[in-house]
Design a protein around this nucleic acid. Structure first.
Lengths: 205, 205
DNA sequence: CGTCCCATGTAAGCTGTTACATGATTCG
DNA sequence: CGAATCATGTAACAGCTTACATGGGACG
C-alpha cells in the first residue's frame, strides 16, 4: 500500500501527467520506489475515483492527449496520515544472498561471475548518486526540505557503499577457497548447517 | 522466481515437512528470503508435480499427517542452473525513505517516532545476527560451506549496521531542524526538487 | 469432552509484471 | 503518406498476503 502514496508525493512536488510521472519514477522517487507506467496509470485512475487527485481541467482528455493531475486536500491529508502511521520494515529479500547460500550446497560454479557483475552495477549506481549529490546538494541548499531529501540520498549512497564493500570482500573470500565444486560429489545424505555438523571437512587445512 | 529455489536449498540442507520448512523460514533462510506457510505448501505442491522433489515414502500422507520432502536430482540440477544464472539486483524499494521524502512536503509530524521505532528494530535484528555469529561461527568451522554461509551472515550484519547508523544520523538531523511543519502553510504553487529551485529559504541561516 | 496446538490446505484479493492495443503528433 | 514516437490505456498472469477451513493428537 505504498504506490499511491509515492504518486501523491510526486504530484505534490509537481503536478504531472502519467507519462511525466513515469519518467520521474525512473529517477528521483524511483530510486527508492520504482513503478512502471501501467502501475501508474491504474493507480491514477483509482486515486481520481477516490477523490484524492483530479485532472487539471485544461485540455480535453481524449485518448493520446496529455492529462495532468493535481492533488486535492483529501489526498494531501491521506498522505500526511500515512506518513505518520506505524509500519514495520519489510524483512530483507535478496536473491543474490540466496544464491550464495545455494552455492554452498550445489557448487559455486558461476556465482563468482555474478558477484563481479553485481559489484559493477552497484558501483555504477553509487557513482550516479554521488553525481546527484554534487549537482543538487552542493552549497546553499539548506531548507528543511533540502535536508530531508539529502538524508534520503544519503541512505542510497551508504547502501550502495555497503554493497560494493561487501561484494569486494566476498570476491576476495571466494578466491581464497579451494577449487572444487565439492558438495555435489558427497554421498546423498547431505546435512549442512541449521543444526551443527562438524564432520566432513574439505581439503584445505 | 526465487521462492522455489529457496525451498530447494532448504530441502537440500535438510529434508523437511511443510511446517518444518515454515519454521526454518522464520530464521536461517528466512533472514534473507521470507515466506509464509501458504506460499510454502503451494510451492511444495508445484515442485512435486514438476518432479523436482518427492514426498518421503515413510508414513501415510493423510490430512493432518506430517509429510516430508526430499530433493530429486532434477531439483538439484535446476537449483544449480538458477544459481549460476545472470539476474540483476532488484531496485531498492523502501517505504520509510518514501515517507521521509513525503514528510518534506506534508510535514514531519510523526516521522521521528517512526525513525526511532525502526532504529530499535534494526538494533534488535543486529543483536540477533551477532548472537548467531558467536554461536555458529566461533572457532573451527572453516569448511568452504561455512565460509559461504558466514559471508551471507556478514551481509546481514553489515546491512543492519548501516541502518542503525543511518537512522541515528537521521534522528540527529531531524532534531537540528526548525520546529514548523512548514510546507503546509506555503502557497499552493509548491515546486520542490526534481529540477532546481533555489528560491524559498527557511529561517535558519 | 473441550481446548489447544500441530499440520496441511482452500479461497479471495491485491500488487506487480509482461505483452499488446489505440489514438495523436511529428518528421522525412 | 509511412514510420517513429508520444501518450494513454487493456488484458492476462504470476506472486504475495490475509483470512479461514479441516483433521488429528495431546492434555487437563
Amino acid at each position: 500500500m505504498s504506490l499511491p502514496h509515492a504518486i501523491l508525493t510526486a504530484l505534490l512536488e509537481k503536478p504531472s501527467s502519467g507519462l511525466e510521472l513515469t519518467r520521474r519514477f525512473d529517477k528521483s522517487i524511483g530510486y527508492f520506489w520504482s513503478a512502471t507506467h501501467q502501475q501508474i496509470y491504474r493507480e491514477l485512475g483509482k486515486l481520481e475515483a477516490e477523490g484524492y487527485i483530479r485532472a487539471l481541467p485544461s485540455e480535453q482528455p481524449t485518448r493520446g492527449q496529455k492529462k495532468s493531475y493535481e492533488v486535492l486536500p483529501a489526498g494531501r491529508a491521506e498522505l500526511a496520515r500515512w506518513t505518520a502511521t506505524a509500519q514495520d520494515p519489510k524483512p530483507l529479500r535478496d536473491a543474490l544472498l540466496l544464491r550464495l547460500r545455494a552455492s554452498a550446497v550445489v557448487g559455486r560454479e558461476g556465482v563468482e561471475v555474478e558477484l563481479r557483475r553485481h559489484l559493477v552495477l552497484h558501483q555504477r549506481q553509487l557513482a550516479e548518486y554521488e553525481e546527484i549529490e554534487e549537482r543538487d546538494f552542493g552549497a546553499g541548499r539548506d531548507t528543511p526540505q533540502d535536508r530531508l531529501q539529502y538524508l534520503v540520498l544519503r541512505a542510497g549512497i551508504d547502501l550502495e557503499t555497503f554493497w560494493t564493500r561487501w561484494l569486494t570482500h566476498a570476491l576476495e573470500e571466494l578466491e581464497r577457497l579451494p577449487e572444487g565444486q565439492s558438495p555435489e560429489r558427497q554421498p546423498p545424505e547431505q546435512r549442512l548447517s541449521e543444526g551443527q555438523s562438524p564432520e566432513q571437512r574439505s581439503p584445505e587445512a
